[in-house]
Simulated assay, not measured.
Amino acid sequence: MLYAILAYHVEEEVASWTPEEDATVMRDLNKVHGRLNELGRLGPAARLGATEGACVLRGPRKGVVTDGPFTESKEQLLGFYILDCADRDAAISAARDLRQVNPSAMYEIRPVKLYLPGVPFPRTEDGVDA
């Protein structure tokens, strides 16, 4: 079964990391990504850009676009993973592996009801457009 693991963090805290601190977290997360990849369980994953560039579309018909996101928490969604796991416990275990190397993040684990892979996009790095 597919699970989405949504990574939340206090954006200001992440933005305050030095380039070296950020690189260390990403290096350690990439080790977890590598293990999940070797097991054939890691699908798409993304690190999202700053929320200052985000917007929200809601409302009837064409909807209304407003600056956003607007959430009722101090954490923001900063990235996500799609994993193929045998069950919920396996998805929780994978999220624990991610959290072990990024302990101040919160990970939400949700079953995926519909997954459409679309076309493969080129891999991107921070600051480089696809």
Rank of each mutant, 00 (worst) to 15 (best):
L2H: 14
L2F: 12
A7G: 01
Y8K: 13
H9C: 05
V10W: 06
E12I: 01
E13H: 11
V14F: 12
E20S: 15
E21I: 00
E21W: 02
D22L: 14
D22K: 13
D22V: 12
A23R: 09
A23L: 06
A23V: 05
V25A: 15
R27G: 08
N30Y: 05
V32M: 08
H33E: 04
H33L: 01
H33G: 02
R35W: 05
L36Q: 09
N37L: 10
N37W: 08
E38L: 14
L39Y: 10
L39E: 15
G40R: 10
R41G: 03
R41P: 03
L42M: 11
L42F: 02
P44K: 08
P44Y: 07
A46D: 04
L48N: 01
L48Y: 07
G49K: 06
T51A: 15
E52I: 14
C55R: 13
V56R: 15
R58L: 10
R58G: 13
R58S: 15
G59T: 08
P60L: 07
P60A: 11
R61K: 00
R61N: 09
G63A: 06
G63E: 02
G63N: 08
V64R: 14
V64T: 14
V65N: 02
T66D: 11
T66R: 11
D67N: 04
D67C: 03
D67V: 02
D67S: 00
G68V: 04
F70L: 10
T71Y: 01
T71V: 10
E72H: 11
K74Q: 09
E75T: 01
E75P: 03
Q76P: 07
F80G: 13
I82F: 10
L83W: 05
L83H: 05
L83D: 02
D84Y: 04
A86Y: 07
R88P: 00
A91T: 02
A91I: 04
I92V: 15
I92T: 12
A94P: 00
A94E: 00
D97N: 09
D97G: 03
L98I: 13
L98D: 01
L98V: 09
R99G: 14
R99M: 14
V101W: 08
V101K: 08
N102Y: 13
E108H: 06
V112S: 00
V112F: 04
V112C: 01
K113N: 14
K113W: 14
K113G: 15
L114Y: 09
Y115T: 03
L116M: 07
L116R: 04
G118F: 06
G118N: 05
E125C: 08
E125Y: 09
D126Y: 11
G127L: 01
G127C: 03
